[in-house]
Simulated assay, not measured.
Amino acid sequence: MGQPGLSSTQGRERPRVAAPVPVVLVGAGKVAHAAHLREIRDLPAELRLAAVVESDPAHIAAVRASGFGEVPVRGSIAEAVRAGARAALVCTPWWTHRAVVEECLSAGLPVLCEKPVSLDLGEVDALAAVELRTGLPVAAGYMKRHDPVVRLFLDHCRERLDRARRLTVDIHDPNAPHQVAHLLPYEPPPFGPQPAPAREALARALGPDSTGAQREAYARGLGGSLIHQVNLVHAVLAGSGRELAGRLLHADGWAAGAGVSCRWRPDDGLVVDLTHQRVPGHRRYREVLEFTAEDGVATLSLPSPYARDETATLTVETWDAGSGLAERRVRTAEPGNTGFRRQLVAWARQLSGEGGALPGLADVRRDARAVREAALRLA
């Protein structure tokens, strides 16, 4: 039996903060333009862009062209604080995150940092020490956790975890310029090799004995994409005593690194299979999570995280072996209320003292540990 999705009224309603929080955007590259700037522009009651820290002239011009012509561009975090910033949204490349986030915390700014916050466990521990010293939170950019349909899926999985048999993730990702070209006011960067600073960071994170293929997979399919789904799996397993780290069965890569898959067995009754394929010839991003329990299947389909005209869809099918009766429910949400938008609203509420904590560095460490183990298992 079909069931309507979340109502349009539910989709539009959101708790308001007392006053918009003045934030600095650190790094105005692809994800800033494809996601965050347009959401900040549409959330004037929650956030106010007080400053941008960026050095690339093309990115600065793009900020000006995106409706933020009056926002000051500064060369440092300290200057952004003097311009009125009271929190930082960090969108620089991942290998710069430790230094940037630490600078923000030391300047008195709580942080929302794009994922991966870091792929280096030592860096995560160092940031946790600064977080503890300053008393300021670092929120991780796991925006899928804020999607209401994803939350329904996670709740369904948690409620049936004692009957679970398998949890799978299958991602077809173009990861190519055409995926975001319509969202950027400049030519999108081509897909290419990791820059030298990234290669150095990957060598530190995985160790000197790691191979080039392992480092590439760690930066791309594993750490660049599947780490988000690993976080969702950890959200399902939280409090159950089950873990991914230490329970890896195998990891495999193919197609010259374009495909990567991993299998974990958190306990004897449950396996977790995650697969990411980079398929630049595909026009659309496709992500499907499926949870199989003894009495049913829940399937979550997700569009591109940048899409505003599509929404997540959850289909739950359950049956009663005794009566032979089955039930099918479908849940969706209003398009336009992206995970990025809901994440920014939740962050604004946290900063205003009106909301709960967002996923943080403890989550980042747990996720990176599991994904790092998979990278080092690749042949």
Rank of each mutant, 00 (worst) to 15 (best):
G2C: 00
Q3M: 13
L6S: 01
S8A: 15
T9R: 15
Q10Y: 13
E13V: 14
P15D: 07
V23Y: 08
L25W: 12
V26L: 13
K30S: 12
V31N: 12
H33F: 13
H36F: 14
R38H: 13
I40K: 08
L47E: 05
V52I: 07
V52A: 06
V53E: 12
E54Y: 04
I60F: 06
A61F: 02
F68L: 03
V71Y: 00
R74G: 03
S76A: 11
A78Q: 08
E79W: 04
A83C: 01
A87E: 01
C91F: 09
C91T: 13
T92G: 05
P93M: 10
W95M: 09
T96A: 15
R98Q: 10
V101W: 02
E102W: 02
E102P: 07
C104H: 03
S106W: 00
C113V: 05
C113H: 01
V117N: 09
D125R: 14
L127Q: 09
V130H: 04
G135D: 00
L136V: 03
V138N: 00
A139I: 10
Y142A: 07
H146P: 02
H146E: 13
V150I: 02
H156K: 06
R165D: 07
H172R: 14
N175R: 11
V180W: 06
L184C: 10
E187K: 15
P189Q: 14
F191K: 15
P197Q: 09
A198N: 10
A198G: 10
G207Q: 14
R215F: 06
G224H: 07
S225E: 03
H228R: 04
Q229A: 06
Q229I: 07
V230K: 09
N231W: 00
N231L: 00
A235Q: 07
V236P: 12
L237Y: 00
L237S: 01
A238P: 03
A238D: 05
G239H: 05
E243N: 12
G246P: 11
L248M: 08
H250A: 12
A251Y: 07
A251V: 08
W254S: 15
A258G: 04
S261A: 15
R263G: 09
L274G: 07
T275F: 04
Q277A: 13
V279Q: 15
V279K: 14
P280M: 01
R284N: 13
R284H: 13
E287Q: 08
E287F: 07
D295H: 14
D295I: 08
V297R: 11
A298Q: 02
A298K: 04
T299P: 02
L300T: 05
L300N: 01
Y306D: 10
D309P: 08
T311E: 12
T311G: 12
T313L: 07
V316H: 04
V316P: 01
V316I: 13
A321C: 08
S323E: 05
R329T: 04
R329V: 05
P335N: 04
R342H: 08
Q343I: 05
L351V: 05
L351I: 03
L351E: 02
G355H: 03
G355S: 02
G356A: 14
P359N: 09
G360T: 09
L361H: 05
A362L: 11
V364S: 14
A370H: 02
E373A: 08
A374V: 01
R377N: 10
A379W: 00
